[in-house]
Amino acid sequence: MRWGVVLSMTVLAVVLIGYEWPRLKKQPRKDKLVFLSLILIAWTLSLFDLPNIPGPTTMVQTLFKPFAILLE
């Protein structure tokens, strides 16, 4: 675990929530839930070493590999 990353990402998450919350208070519950879950997803993803693990981009790459023959 890289504690520096964990700490800075937590700070970022707290800052974002603190920035938006005053305006979000009046919004319906669903909006708050979506906002918080997006933050949670982003925070969780930030903890990984993303460039070196396969993601959606890798999936797309494998998916379209057969078409690459057209271009070779």
Binding site: L16, P56, Q61
Partner: peptide, 12 residues
Amino acid sequence: WLTILFCFWGIP
């Protein structure tokens, strides 16, 4: 935030 993550995810 997610956009920045997607710009690195799976692209070494």
